[in-house]
Write a protein that binds this DNA or RNA. Sequence first.
DNA 1: AGGTTGTAACGCGATATTACAATAAAGATA
DNA 2: TATCTTTATTGTAATATCGCGTTACAACCT
Lengths: 108, 108
Amino acid sequence: MGITKNHIFDDYQNETALITKVLGHPARIAILQHISKHEYCNCNDLVKATGLAQPTVSQHLSEIKRIQLLKQKQQGKNTFYAIDLDLLNQYRRKINDFFVKVQVNCQK
Amino acid sequence: MGITKNHIFDDYQNETALITKVLGHPARIAILQHISKHEYCNCNDLVKATGLAQPTVSQHLSEIKRIQLLKQKQQGKNTFYAIDLDLLNQYRRKINDFFVKVQVNCQK
DNA sequence: AGGTTGTAACGCGATATTACAATAAAGATA
DNA sequence: TATCTTTATTGTAATATCGCGTTACAACCT
């Protein structure tokens, strides 16, 4: 997307945007939904669940890993994925707080 | 970014992703913060607040308008922007619910 | 060893995004 | 009328993203 000028924004703005950006694709929403319903599923499960090709799913998994939202367990050739619930909750609060702050500021 | 295959995902996934995608840029986070603190500010205010060029700000405003999060008041040559609080709250709940559902599913 | 399976990495085409200069259009002001 | 101000639009360069075919590399099986 051309170069985002991250340096002119503060940490809060960059972090908030990074979390929402990772969530900003339907495939990644679908992947998180599926992992939540099938803990420690593998990449092939997600290929079937999403209907995307394996390399595409792998790429979306990498995006989600950028914000450390995934835990992996290697078991032989299989890689099993689960969601880091502590971080998920942290991000939930962070995004919710952003909305709330905007709302409160508006009402002053 | 190549073509996102929206048709293979359901409405919930597409809508959730669209909202977070719009929030997924630090400039748009900054713009929403500024509008919330200075109700009915104009485009020039946002140019000064963000440090981006006027066409860039205008483009980001368009992105935010895609999810109807902005109300505008035309006053002569000035366009004043404010946030649609009802929709903001609706989106806040929608995103928060997504996080909560994922969390709850994980714990089953 | 040879074949199968699961996943990441590489590479590419198509398209989207970011950022901005230049311009246009409309309202204000001298 | 001429000029300035404000904002949207157009066009463009640079870069990122999406999706996938192909490949590479394990680990498992026979």
